[in-house]
């Protein structure tokens, strides 16, 4: 038996790796789970891709802004699928009634969160890489052509998705499967507010303050600046990153508070509603 640190904050790569392995075993055993990762992003791509194709034929602006919708839908999917990848991996423990086994094991909550973050990226890669290739083949849109900007967009979107995923998982852990719906729907409240398909200036002035409090807004504005003006807005990315760090810290604190509350009300032993 190893003499591992007994601190709640000590992170063991071995335990994080064990949890990642658990989810990889699961993905490998279920072709339907893998198909599900690719199916919706591909459907979204084709709907928005053909719509953009049609509009571009009838509008000079949209012809100039080729790829704006496809870029937006792919970036939105990074945000949405990133959160879903995190939350669904957590839900797998609830569905399999395995949460108590984990919470009683030496696994630290922060290691559990780290494993879910890794799985969020793995699931995103499985789902998104084939779809970005389809975007190149069918619509001539190369997301990787964004270069370094894509790295900045991705880092900011995935950080936001993790923050939301962490809070959603905490709520489900504390309140049971009755709160599962949150995992599938909570991100959609961000869709109109973060201005995925239109500029922030379209919103009423008071709502613009809300929009600018959300990191993805900066990413979608940055993407439009890149596509329409061929300008990389580093200032927007830095602002988004600063906001993301704050939200991530708050999300982890909320998760730990919900875990403490779950221990108080005895919900770690239950996986039902």
């Amino acid at each position: 038996m190893s003499m591992a640190s007994t601190s709640a904050l000590a992170i063991s790569p071995r335990r994080v790796g064990a949890m990642v392995l658990r989810y990889l075993y699961l993905l490998r055993s279920s072709w339907s789970r893998v198909l599900d990762l690719i199916y919706w992003p591909a459907v979204q791509l084709f709907v928005w891709g053909f719509l953009q194709y049609y509009i571009a034929q009838n509008s000079g602006f949209f012809a100039r802004a080729a790829g704006m919708f496809i870029g937006a839908v792919l970036l939105w999917d990074i945000l949405f699928r990133g959160q879903l990848g995190f939350s669904v991996s957590f839900l797998e423990e609830m569905w399999s009634r395995n949460l108590a086994n984990l919470m009683f094991s030496p696994l630290r909550p922060i290691e559990f969160v780290a494993a879910l973050m890794v799985m969020s990226i793995v699931r995103l890669a499985v789902g998104m890489v084939p779809v970005t290739i389809l975007a190149i083949v069918f619509f001539g849109f190369n997301l990787y052509g964004f270069g370094f900007a894509l790295v900045a967009f991705f880092a900011n979107l995935i950080l936001t998705s993790w923050s939301v995923g962490i809070v959603v998982s905490g709520v489900v852990m504390r309140n049971g499967m009755g709160a599962e719906t949150l995992a599938w729907t909570v991100m959609f409240i961000l869709m109109p507010l973060t201005c995925v398909y239109y500029p922030v200036s379209v919103l009423p002035e008071w709502l613009q303050y809300v929009a600018w409090a959300l990191p993805p807004t900066y990413v979608f504005e940055g993407m439009r600046a890149l596509v329409l003006e061929q300008t990389f807005r580093a200032d927007l990315m830095l602002a988004a990153f600063a906001l993301n760090l704050g939200y991530f810290a708050i999300a982890v604190a909320v998760f730990l508070a919900l875990l403490r509350s779950a221990r108080r009300i005895g919900s770690l032993l239950q996986s039902g509603e």
Partner: peptide
């Protein structure tokens, strides 16, 4: 406990591997 399950889709070996690693079994 009968009120707590092991992940059903994982094989017995996979489940024991995951928990063995969590418990730092040599």
């Amino acid at each position: 406990s009968p009120y707590v399950d092991m992940p059903n889709r994982l094989t017995v070996r996979q489940n024991l591997t995951v928990f063995g690693r969590l418990y730092a079994v040599a």
